[in-house]
């Protein structure tokens, strides 16, 4: 097994520990973190999906791999949603593939500005719609993990 995947896998089996409460893992785009069981030991797997076919197809595939690994809570988070049409397209896709849509983060011009200037979203504008949407996810995620 590729050593970096093995290391993350080993870490996740033994974390969180001591004075840590929550571990958040930002994975690479490649599905290797799933096909190599790197992230099997998590409580919640968020699959970020944009409202276009290739992104949704990827989300469906990743969610399937996550479920195969036995992850209890595999959920989709819609991102860069530009309105009702986008949201209903994602919701429809999730419904027809038995995926749970946890929430939606809107397309946010302030976020694009933050990215351009290399400033974290939270420093750029803590009240931005996208930041507020992520804030809304926190409670959902904590509740999922506690269930």
């Amino acid at each position: 097994m590729c050593s970096s995947h093995a290391t993350v896998r080993g870490l996740l089996h033994e974390l969180p520990t001591g004075d840590l409460d929550v571990v958040v893992v930002d994975n690479e785009a490649s599905p290797e973190h799933l096909s190599r069981s790197t992230t099997e030991a998590v409580d919640v797997m968020l699959v970020v999906a944009e409202p276009y076919f290739k992104s949704l197809e990827t989300a469906r595939r990743y969610a399937g791999l996550g479920k195969d690994l036995g992850i209890a809570n595999v959920v989709v988070v819609a991102n860069k949603v530009r309105g009702e049409d986008d949201l209903s397209a994602i919701q429809g896709f999730c419904d027809s593939h038995d995926l749970k849509l946890l929430g939606a983060v809107p397309f946010d011009e302030t976020l694009a500005q933050a990215e351009r200037s290399g400033v974290p979203p939270l420093e750029h504008d803590p009240g931005a719609p996208s930041v507020r949407a992520v804030e809304g996810l926190v409670e959902h995620i904590l509740r999922l993990a506690a269930a």
Partner: peptide
């Protein structure tokens, strides 16, 4: 509790993971 964030390249994984981590941190965890 462990949360993993996956998705296609460019979908916004890192922005969402990082902001999520900080907002969970701000809640006292």
């Amino acid at each position: 509790m462990k949360v993993s964030v996956s998705g296609k390249g460019g979908s916004g994984k890192t922005t969402i993971s990082g902001t999520l981590a900080r907002l969970i941190g701000r809640s006292g965890k």
